[in-house]
């Protein structure tokens, strides 16, 4: 797959639009179909396409393992952090009403942040899953070659 010019050029052209579409789904989720779960999967799909065409090594240079793990954890932390922020501002856990001057605006901010956390975690998990499964084969072949 690495040497096929059609696939390489197509992947290069598609990579950025897929991510833009993912961001659109992420931040337009309040007004149309979409949200963090879908956006996370779409953005992960862009990176998976990149790894499929240009190889796992190139994919890991683009998103190193530590960055991937950080994405996993940060998403959950952002979600929980929004909840704790509500408690700090004299509300309840995950109470968005107190996040801004009026309740409706606070809900908007809360939903946006929470969806962002969801998107980050889902992107990270899908990417980590792909690399774990695709990299598994390589690791095993390496082990067989050594012996």
């Amino acid at each position: 797959m690495l040497d096929n010019p059609i696939l390489r050029v197509t992947a290069k052209i598609l990579f950025a639009p897929i991510i833009i579409f993912g961001l659109y789904v992420q931040f337009h989720g309040d007004y149309g179909p979409g949200g963090g779960f879908q956006a996370g999967v779409i953005i992960a799909a862009a990176f998976i396409l990149h790894s499929l065409i240009f190889g796992l090594e190139a994919g890991r240079r683009l998103v190193p393992g530590w960055a991937n793990l950080a994405m996993l954890a940060c998403g959950v932390l952002i979600y929980g952090g929004v909840g704790v922020a509500g408690m700090m501002l004299d509300g309840l856990f995950l109470d968005y009403n107190v996040l801004a001057s009026d309740a409706s605006k606070g809900q908007h901010y809360g939903i946006l942040l929470v969806e962002f956390g969801v998107g980050l975690t889902v992107t990270g998990v899908m990417l980590a899953l792909f690399h774990a499964f695709a990299g598994f084969v390589e690791a095993d072949y390496a082990a067989t070659e050594d012996e």
Binding site: D30, Y31, G34, G35, S104, Q107, H108, I111
Partner: peptide, 8 residues
């Protein structure tokens, strides 16, 4: 809430 997508 003024958010049209009820699922969100």
């Amino acid at each position: 809430l003024h958010i049209p997508n009820v699922v969100t």
